[in-house]
Each structure stands twice: as C-alpha cells, then as structure tokens.
Design a binder for these strands. Structure first.
Length: 322
DNA sequence: CATCAGGGCCCTG
DNA sequence: CAGGGCCCTGAT
C-alpha cells in the first residue's frame, strides 16, 4: 500500500460545454477497483510514464460554465514543472480543452440525435487510464462475459497492482509493463485468465522493449494509429476500436461493430432485432459523419444509464450478458 | 451429468 | 476467407 499525503489544489476551467458527471462516469463501463465515483466527484490513480499520482476531481461549476477543483496527491511535494505535466495529461484524457460545440450546433435538429444531445449536453469521451492500462482492460474484455472480466481484473489488480491511499480513498493502480515481463505464464494461468496470460506477458514485453510511445501514437492520423495498434499481438479490430475511441479520442472512425453491439444498435437505431453490421455502419457514418463515434456514444450511454436507474429493459439485459 | 457459446484473436489450410 | 482452438463459467 502506498499512501500519498502531499496535496496540491488547482482549479481547472474546461471548454464549455462540459458535462462533468457524464464525462467521467460511464454507466456502460464495467466496475473495478481502480476508481471511485459519486455525483460531482471522481477519484483515481493517474499513471504517467510509470509514475503515479492520486487524483481527485470535483465539479464546482456547471455545464455551460464548467469549473473543476483538482487535487493532486503525491508522496512528496511536486515541482511546478511536474504539476504542469499532470495538468496537460488530464487535459488530454478528459478533453478539458476540446471544443465540441460544433457537434451540438450541427445536430441540434437531428431527428434521432437531438433528444440525446439535450439529455447529455456537454458529455465527452474520456479515459482515466494510459494506453497500456486500457490495453489490459481490452484483453480482460475479450471473449467472455462481464462477470468474468470483473473477476479477472480484480484478481490481477490485487496480485500485481498497487493499492494507493489518498483523500481517505483506497484505489488500485495497474502494474507497469516491466512488472509483468518476468511473471511465469503458469502463475497468471492459476488466476484463471486463460489464454490471456500469454497476451499480458507478450504485450508487456513489447511495451518495454520496443518502447511503444503513446505520445507518438496520439499525433498520428486515425488510420495510421489503427495500423500500429493492430500490429500488437492479441489486438484485433475490436480491441483496436476501444483504444482508438477511448484512449486516443478519435470520434471519426466508425467501421467495426461487434456482434453483441450489433444487437443493441439494431434495437436502438432501427427498432429491429438484427440489422447487418454493414447497414449499421453505413447509416451511422452517413448521418453523423466525422462525429459518428461520439453520436453513437450518446445513444449508447443513454440506454445504459436508464438501465442503471433501475428501468427494466429486457432485451438489453439479455444482450449484455452479465 | 454433459454440452455449449461467449463484450476476440491467431493460426492453419 | 472459413473455421478450429483457446480458457473458464454459467445457462440449458
């Protein structure tokens, strides 16, 4: 356990509109020990280049006049240069400075989208994890159901992650690539992660040896970034999609729909049981163009939010396979 | 009890 | 380009 007692307070003013709760908390994501959320407040461990900080963000503004109180927790007092880096990184991961007002302007009269835009006005995509951490999550998601994903994630966090305490919260941070490269495959397999054991080790080696630079990846056009990601062992179209959308924040590449998503989107967009994925992809791109991914995100999170509120949505419960 | 497919991906033929 | 194998789990 690591305790971080040094605290630095800073105010952040995101670009308006910015919907704090809808951006930091996504009802469609699976729960794990790496974060803590309550309305208007979010805690997690920030890992930048294998250095960790405790982060608490608190909403003290509104959607139109956003303001966030940021507390950075560390073991020792941080030099100002390091604090600037942390803020810059948070700007990227939570899109504090990204202007998406064009999206609302363009689609405010859109037949399908407009009610969702009203309900979730100012919501961005966001990602508390770095690229490696989200890749680990992507592997946990592969070829299984939510319950097992949660189980594998938490058991691995307990064994290889670090428990971090700050602001009276305890959350886990992921292991770093170098911590995983010498772990025997059998040891991982005993944690019931199956074929993923090999992937964790192999991917970690790739990150250590070839020094995959997520900061370089961020600068690439979406097609180039995708090409690079697909070269990683164990990363196919679906895992690449997750990384491109969430970690690298690309809103314009909508070209892959997994079969469980296909069922849900068929319902939401066409009110039908099953529409061919090509049709879905064509429809989404035609309607929402370079905002395709964000548009679907609005519709997607809305239904998961309703479900979280206790609304019974039978067809959905069946498709998400808890 | 046994069987089977799943919030993919790799490899083979 | 189709299809088998990978792991474990819970549904049937």
């Amino acid at each position: 356990m690591k305790e971080l007692n040094e605290r630095k307070l800073i105010e952040i003013t995101p670009k308006s509109p910015y919907n704090f709760d809808a951006t930091v908390f996504k009802p469609s994501y699976y729960p794990d020990y790496t974060k803590s959320y309550e309305k208007g407040k979010y805690w997690f461990v920030l890992n930048i280049n294998n250095k960790i900080y405790g982060i608490k963000m608190e909403n003290i503004g509104s959607i139109k006049k956003p303001k966030i109180k940021l507390a950075i927790f560390s073991k020792y007092k941080l030099p100002s240069g390091e604090i600037e880096k942390i803020i810059e990184e948070l700007n990227y991961r939570f899109e504090f400075k990204r202007d998406i007002s064009e999206f609302f302007e363009k689609f405010k009269e859109d037949k399908i989208l407009s009610p969702f835009l009203k309900r979730w006005y100012g919501m961005h995509s966001s990602c508390a994890q770095n690229l490696y951490e989200l890749l680990m999550i992507g592997i946990f998601l592969q070829n299984t159901v939510v319950k097992r994903t949660v189980q594998m994630t938490n058991v691995m966090l307990e064994k290889y992650g670090t428990k971090v305490k700050f602001d009276n919260k305890e959350v886990y941070s992921f292991w770093n690539p170098k911590d995983m490269i010498n772990v025997p495959e059998d040891e991982l397999r005993s944690l019931k992660v199956g074929y993923r054991a090999k992937l964790f080790i192999k991917l970690s080696k790739t990150f250590v040896e070839e020094k995959i630079d997520e900061f370089e990846l961020r600068k690439l056009q979406v097609d180039k970034a995708k090409e690079k990601l697909l070269k990683l062992y164990g990363v196919g179209p679906e895992t690449a999609r997750i990384l491109l959308q969430e970690s690298l924040h690309h809103y314009n590449l909508f070209e892959h729909v997994a079969s469980w998503q296909q069922k849900i989107l068929s319902h939401l967009l066409f009110n039908k049981k099953l529409v061919p994925t090509e049709k879905i992809i064509e429809y989404v791109n035609k309607n929402w163009e370079k905002w395709a991914v964000l548009a679907v995100h609005y519709i997607w999170e809305d239904i998961f939010w309703q479900r979280k509120q206790g609304k019974k949505i039978e067809w959905l419960d069946k498709e998400i396979r808890l």
